[in-house]
Computed example of a mutant assay.
Amino acid sequence: MRILHTSDWHLGRTLHGESLHEHQVRFHDWLVDLVAEREVDAVVIPGDVYDRAVPDVASVELLGRTLSRLARITTVILTPGNHDSAARLGFGRDLLRSGVHLLTDLPGIEHPVVLEDEHGEVLVFGLPYLEPDMVRHALTPEGEETLGRSHAAVLQAAMDRVRERIAQHARHAQRPRAIVLAHAFVAGGSASDSERDLSVGGIGSVPGSVFCGIDYLALGHLHGGQDLSALVGAPAWYSGSPLAFSFSEKDHRKSVLLLDIGAPSAGGPAEMTVERISTPVPRPLTELRGTLEEVLAEAPAHGQDWLKAIITDAARPPHLQERLHQVFPHLLLTEFDPQGRGERDLAPLVRREADPLAVMDEFFDFVTGAPPTPLEHEILDDAYSAVRAGRQEAS
Rank of each mutant, 00 (worst) to 15 (best):
P269E: 06
L259E: 03
P264T: 07
A347G: 14
L296S: 08
H325C: 05
A386K: 12
E378C: 08
I311P: 01
V327F: 06
W306P: 00
L285K: 02
E378W: 08
A383R: 03
A383Q: 05
D345L: 11
A301S: 14
M272W: 02
T279W: 04
P371A: 10
V295M: 00
A315G: 13
R351D: 14
A297Y: 06
Q321V: 06
L346N: 11
T373F: 06
A299P: 04
F328D: 07
I379R: 14
L307A: 02
P264E: 04
L380C: 08
L333T: 10
A347V: 13
D365P: 00
L285S: 01
R341K: 10
D345C: 05
D313A: 03
L375Q: 14
V295N: 00
A270P: 05
A383S: 03
G262L: 01
E271A: 15
V295F: 00
L257G: 03
Q339R: 15
D260E: 15
A263Y: 04
G342L: 09
P317K: 02
R323E: 12
E343L: 15
R344E: 08
M360D: 06
G267P: 00
D382S: 09
K254I: 14
S265G: 11
A383P: 00
E271F: 09
R323I: 07
R276A: 15
P348R: 09
K308N: 06
L296G: 08
V359D: 01
L320Y: 01
P372I: 03
E343A: 15
L324T: 00
E294R: 04
M360W: 05
P269D: 07
K254N: 13
L333Y: 02
T279R: 02
L307T: 01
